[in-house]
Write a protein that binds this DNA or RNA. Structure first.
Length: 270
DNA sequence: CTACGTACCTGCCAGC
DNA sequence: TGCTGGCAGGTACGTA
């Protein structure tokens, strides 16, 4: 997926086509996503104007006059704005019909994503309990330090917990910890305040830089306009097991933390 | 409460 | 060539 930068790049890409537009309906071909698509989605959204297009963590929220459409891209989801008569591809699960014969087409091979209409999206349990945004002022080293006391969980798993802070997935957790010089296995409760301050800073820098470069294109993420992101060229550790650390030259190590591939430099990260 | 394993689903790639 | 197993950017839930 789609981590926070990819979702933000998607939001920026589709916004001009949706903001202020009146939705004319929806076509649901496969409702079985992580959250089921509303059986009566077309009736619920049809005739409504898109008031705002927000991002909360990795969720995209299309605020309508009444209620909101919640979209999550899961591991393999993808959104594109296309002419409605564009030939269907495998896994094109939902079309939101916009004006001028255009549609917002949701494609998701693994169906770990979501697209549904909710009356009050901010009160939904999936959204209401999320941690702060990493790019706003309420996310800081002091905050991470305070929440991590007495926690034994590896700091990488702590950083990837959306109830702590949203939007930091596997790629950017690996990259931020490398940039901050912190061993991903270290218990979260044993990281000092000054090192959390450094980590909060590297998280912000890594995410911001990825957004500016159009996200990280791996197997199946590309931007809504079909162009690729270039952040992959900047990855220091993710996917580089066995290769030389860009800082000290030692071979990078790899292991699994919380079931996720973790790559780090045992010399630079302590 | 915390930590951990597992499940959801399809596609792709390495290895046999 | 073709099969199989393992792995993939996320998240929620069950269990101890």
């Amino acid at each position: 997926m789609p981590e926070l930068p990819e979702v933000e790049v998607t939001r920026l890409g589709i916004s001009p086509h949706l903001l202020g537009q009146r939705l004319e309906g929806a076509i649901v071909r496969e409702p079985r996503l992580r959250l089921p698509v509303n059986p009566d989605l077309a009736e619920q959204i049809s005739g409504q104007t898109v008031r705002q297009l927000r991002r909360r963590g990795k969720y995209l929220l299309l605020d309508l006059e009444h209620g909101s459409i919640l979209i999550h891209l899961g591991m393999s989801g993808h959104l594109r704005v296309l002419p409605r008569d564009t030939a269907l591809r495998k896994h094109d699960h939902v079309d939101l019909l916009i004006t001028d014969q255009l549609c917002l087409r949701f494609n998701d091979p693994r169906r770990f994503g979501a697209l549904c209409w909710l009356e009050d999206v901010d009160q939904h349990p999936l959204i209401a309990r999320l941690g702060p945004e990493p790019l706003t002022a309420d996310f800081s080293g002091e905050y991470l330090y305070a929440l991590s006391r007495h926690r034994q969980i590896p700091v990488k798993a702590f950083l990837m917990d959306a109830h702590i802070v949203v939007g930091v997935g596997n790629i950017y957790a690996n990259e931020s910890l490398f940039a901050a010089g912190i061993d991903p296995r270290r218990p979260a409760g044993r990281v000092a305040l000054t090192r959390y301050q450094r980590l909060a800073q590297t998280v912000r820098e890594v995410l911001q830089s990825a957004i500016l470069q159009g996200g990280t294109t791996l197997r199946d993420f590309s931007r809504p306009d079909g162009r690729n992101g270039y952040f992959r060229l900047s990855l220091a550790v993710y996917g580089r097991e066995g290769q030389a650390c860009i800082r000290c030259g030692a071979a990078l190590h790899s292991l699994r933390i919380g079931g996720r591939a973790t790559t780090y430099c045992s010399h630079c990260q302590r």
